[in-house]
């Protein structure tokens, strides 16, 4: 399975004050906090580790159908700024991250990373609804082209845990994908090895 998270660094700087008392301690282990403190660009490390936790959590919810809010329990290991892993409740997720001037985007995988379509783009409107719809429409279009099926037969609906699921002619598809949006960025990832039920 796949999980995807994106952070718009400029918007994160406006929306979140990670330097407020107790913030780091709620979210990051001692080891992670020392990675942050010893980083040249501390805020970048905060959001890199955050996006790893989020991407891994998005797989966890798909796997177990259970929502939990405890980011500190998802523990990160970094091999480099591009590669790492997250451990949570006995599961290990491999992560691959991309850091740009004003974004961090992480993919998490529950098994060996397979062929994946990853698309990241800018969205001019930061309203939640517009963004959510824009990302879903782009994912549907990409999927429709990939599998050569009409766009009108595809639909995304959220399940009770807010996990987006794809339906083809009303039939729920089991393959894994993940969408994310924040600030002026949107992104989706599709695991294309997944089977397709028509």
């Amino acid at each position: 399975m796949i999980g995807n998270d994106i952070v718009d660094l400029k918007i994160a700087a406006l929306e979140s004050n990670w330097k407020r008392p107790r913030f780091l301690d709620k979210v990051f282990s001692k080891q992670e906090q020392s990675l942050i403190i010893n980083s040249e660009i501390q805020s970048q490390m905060v959001w890199l580790l955050w996006s790893m936790k989020e991407a891994a959590y998005k797989i966890y919810v798909q796997q177990y159908g259970e929502r939990i809010f405890n980011p500190k329990k998802l523990t990160c290991e970094l091999i480099s700024t591009r590669e790492g892993s997250v451990n949570f409740n006995g599961n290990q997720y491999v992560t691959k991250s991309e850091i740009g001037d004003d974004f961090v985007n992480t993919m998490a995988y529950s098994e060996e990373p397979n062929t994946t379509i990853i698309h990241r783009f800018k969205i001019e409107d930061t309203s939640y609804k517009t963004q959510s719809n824009a990302v879903k429409q782009k994912l549907l279009k990409s999927f429709s082209e990939l599998k050569k099926i009409p766009l009108k037969n595809l639909e995304i609906k959220n399940d009770k845990n807010s996990v987006p699921r794809l339906f083809h002619n009303g039939i729920k598809q089991s393959f894994s994908f993940s969408i994310a949006h924040h600030g002026f960025y949107g992104a989706y990832a599709i695991s294309i090895n997944s089977s397709f039920q028509s």
């Binding site: 994160a12 929306e15 979140s16 004050n17 407020r20 008392p21 107790r22 913030f23 709620k26 979210v27 955050w50 989020e54 929502r67 809010f69 980011p71 939640y128 807010s162 924040h182």
Partner: peptide, 16 residues
């Protein structure tokens, strides 16, 4: 999260 669409980083702020 589901209704108010609070992003998870801000959920930390809510708790603080």
């Amino acid at each position: 999260v589901k209704d108010l669409k609070i992003n998870s980083a801000n959920l930390v702020d809510v708790i603080l």
